[in-house]
């Protein structure tokens, strides 16, 4: 039942695109960082997913333009940022995204912080283990099982507001823990 690739398919097999293979890997392995960046710019998960999709399309189209050895993420962030700004221009007065000034400020802050993304990710693993059991379980249910706060609140018989505050406190604890483990730039 497996179909053959149509003519012109750009396979991801190692031998098919040797000149771009490293760049492809960079693109693949940085999807979450890129998603986090876009999410911080638009503040809406669904919109961030759509924009990530558009950004991926453009990254793929321009893959050959990327110069190996230069900063891939800066390039990817820039393309994502243009997509966000284009969305804002398109939506105009609907104001479903931040204004250009806010986008620019967030982008700068995120790019700086993103340089420590891998270290922070490693620290996060350790910090989650340091949470109290109930907090770790709550984080797991929220993120691992993908429950929304509202559904989770229904499930455990707590108000959504109270649960949201609890989750916020856990995130704040994790932020503090990560900071203590990662040297500031």
């Amino acid at each position: 039942m497996q179909q053959q690739p149509p003519h012109g398919h750009r396979s991801t097999q190692p031998n098919a695109v040797p000149s771009s293979n490293d760049t492809v890997q960079l693109m693949l392995t940085n999807q979450n960082r890129l998603f986090g960046f876009i999410l911080s710019l638009v503040g809406n998960r669904e919109q961030a997913n759509d924009l990530l999709q558009q950004t991926n399309l453009i990254l793929w189209e321009k893959l050959d333009d990327f110069e190996p050895g230069t900063n891939f993420m800066a390039w990817a962030f820039q393309i994502a940022r243009y997509q966000v700004m284009a969305l804002r221009q398109k939506q105009g007065r609907d104001r479903h995204v931040f204004d250009d000034e806010a986008v620019s400020l967030i982008a700068t802050a995120f790019e700086t912080q993103s340089e420590r993304f891998d270290d922070r990710l490693t620290a996060l693993t350790q910090c989650i283990q340091q949470l109290p059991d109930d907090g770790r379980n709550l984080i797991h249910r929220r993120y691992g099982d993908g429950w929304s706060v509202k559904n989770l609140a229904n499930e455990i018989g707590q108000s959504a507001n109270r649960l949201a505050v609890r989750l916020h406190r856990l995130r704040a604890m994790l932020m503090e823990c990560i900071q203590s483990k990662c040297e500031p730039l």
Partner: peptide, 23 residues
Amino acid sequence: VSLHAMLELQHHRTPTVEMPLES
């Protein structure tokens, strides 16, 4: 927001991308 994205990553939400067809 970065932490939020990392938590999703920690909990197995890591995307990889199929490459588009030339056509």
